[in-house]
């Protein structure tokens, strides 16, 4: 068995791959780096797969928390892992968008799943999952509910501030002026989509775009991003585990290389 671990800023993911290169299981826990999240995910994953940790031949860790996790054989960036994971799950895709808690990234890869170029958001929370978290807090809902609210919107309320802190006060004042929360929710998604579309423009997008990460579960986000890009955006299957799956695939490659 090969193990891939992806420790993000707000969730921990793990994936197991068997000798034949098929996924034997994935697990997501919504607790990020600096918590028990990854241990919980691993315990549950082992139990479900009916294996013991000793059966793992090689482990690759990725994600924001990778540098602090000492038990893996190798650490590889989330850029390479997401590309690998997407290539495995959706072999025809050449561009993947991942809106993470801290970092948003757009990766362009070649037909073999090798990264050709990537861009990430600047050192700022605009266009990241953190922005959505803050918006959800102002709207008094969970980040998961943002999608439902936005789906019922009749219009977008434009959020003009790039800065998350200013956007927060902008949204508060819009709500107090009587704007409907649904419309504000969609405005928030639109603001992120515009930022991400800007990143996409920088790497250059071909054909359809895949989306990985937890935000890909947000259907309205996917829809709004498709509109901004003018092309279909397809959420990856098991989108939250894409990085961990990529890490597990790389674990298998590494193990074979070292032998």
């Amino acid at each position: 068995m090969y193990l891939g671990i992806d420790i993000g800023s707000s969730s921990s993911k793990a994936a197991l791959l068997n000798e034949e290169g098929t996924i034997a299981g994935t697990q997501v826990v919504n607790l990020g780096t600096g918590t028990q999240g990854i241990q919980t995910a691993l315990d549950e994953l082992y139990e479900r797969a009916g294996i013991s940790p000793g059966q793992v031949l090689y482990t690759v860790v990725t994600g924001y928390g990778r540098l602090l996790y000492t038990e893996a054989d190798k650490q590889i960036t989330e850029i390479t892992c997401h590309a690998k994971g997407i290539h495995y799950l959706m072999p025809d895709v050449r561009t993947v968008v991942d809106i993470g808690g801290q970092d948003s990234k757009v990766i362009r890869m070649d037909s073999g799943g090798t990264v050709q170029n990537f861009v990430m958001n600047e050192k700022c929370a605009a266009g990241t999952g953190r922005f959505l978290e803050v918006m959800a807090r102002v709207l008094g809902c969970s980040i998961g509910d943002l999608s439902c609210l936005a789906a019922q919107a009749t219009q977008d309320v434009a959020i003009s501030s790039v800065c998350t802190v200013f956007a927060e006060s902008e949204v508060i004042s819009q709500l107090s002026q009587g704007q409907h929360p649904n419309d504000v929710a969609r405005g928030a998604l639109r603001a992120v989509a515009k930022r991400v579309a800007g990143l996409c423009g920088r790497v250059g997008v071909e054909d359809s775009v895949a989306m990985s990460g937890g935000v890909a579960l947000n259907q309205t986000m996917v829809e709004v991003l498709s509109q901004e890009l003018g092309r279909p955006v397809v959420p990856a299957p098991d989108s939250q585990a894409v990085g961990a799956i990529g890490a597990a695939l790389l674990a298998r490659e590494q193990y074979r290389k070292t032998r």
Partner: peptide
């Protein structure tokens, strides 16, 4: 105030992975 070490390292490491490929 503008620089973030973790972000720098991730980008450099990704560059290494691309160069290695």
């Amino acid at each position: 105030r503008i620089f973030s070490q973790a972000q720098y390292e991730t980008r450099i490491q990704a560059l290494v992975e691309m160069m290695e490929e």
